[in-house]
Amino acid sequence: MHGLGNDFVVIDARAAAIPAMTPAVARALGDRRTGVGFDQLILLEASGTHDFRVRFFNADGSEAGACGNGSRAVALLHGVPAVVETQGGTLRLEPFDGGARVDMGAPRFDWNAIPLAYPMDTHAMPVGWESLEAPMAVNVGNPHVIFFVDDAEAVELERLGPLIEHDPLFPERVNVNVASLAGPDHLRLRVWERGAGLTRACGTGACATAVAAIRRGLVQSPVRVSLPGGDLVIAWEPGGTILMSGPATESFRGTFDWDAYAAGAAG
Rank of each mutant, 00 (worst) to 15 (best):
R27V: 01
M120I: 09
G48A: 00
D110C: 05
G105E: 10
R55D: 03
L77F: 08
V74W: 15
V74E: 15
E133I: 08
A28Y: 03
D51W: 02
R53N: 03
G37W: 03
E94K: 12
G105A: 10
L76F: 14
F148I: 10
S62L: 01
S62G: 06
P135T: 12
D150G: 13
E85C: 09
V74M: 12
N69D: 09
I18Y: 05
G48D: 02
N58P: 06
A46W: 03
D31Y: 01
A17H: 12
R53M: 05
L91H: 09
R32M: 00
G88E: 13
F147T: 13
M21Q: 07
G30K: 01
R72N: 05
M136G: 12
L116F: 03
A59D: 02
A100Q: 15
A20M: 12
T22R: 00
G35V: 01
M125R: 14
E63G: 07
F56E: 02
W129S: 11
D97W: 10
D151P: 09
H144C: 11
H144T: 09
D51S: 00
N142G: 15
A17T: 03
I146M: 14
S47N: 06
L41I: 04
N112F: 10
R32I: 06
L132T: 13
D39T: 03
G98A: 01
F52R: 05
S71F: 03
R72F: 07
R32G: 01
N58R: 01
F57Q: 04
A46S: 02
A137Y: 15
Q40L: 02
A117S: 15
P115A: 07
A82E: 10
H50F: 01
N112A: 10
G61W: 00
W111K: 05
A73R: 04
T122Q: 10
G68F: 07
D151L: 08
A73T: 15
S131P: 14
E85L: 07
I42C: 00
A28E: 10
M21C: 04
V127A: 12
F52W: 04
V149I: 09
G37N: 01
V138P: 11
A106W: 05
A152G: 11
D121N: 12
I18M: 04
E85D: 09
L44A: 14
A154H: 10
G105S: 06
A66S: 15
I18W: 13
S62F: 04
A124L: 03
V25A: 00
E45L: 04
D110S: 08
R33P: 10
A100W: 06
G68T: 06
R32K: 03
A154Y: 02
V83S: 09
F52D: 08
E45F: 00
E130F: 15
N112K: 11
S131C: 15
A73M: 04
A66H: 08
A24F: 03
L77Q: 14
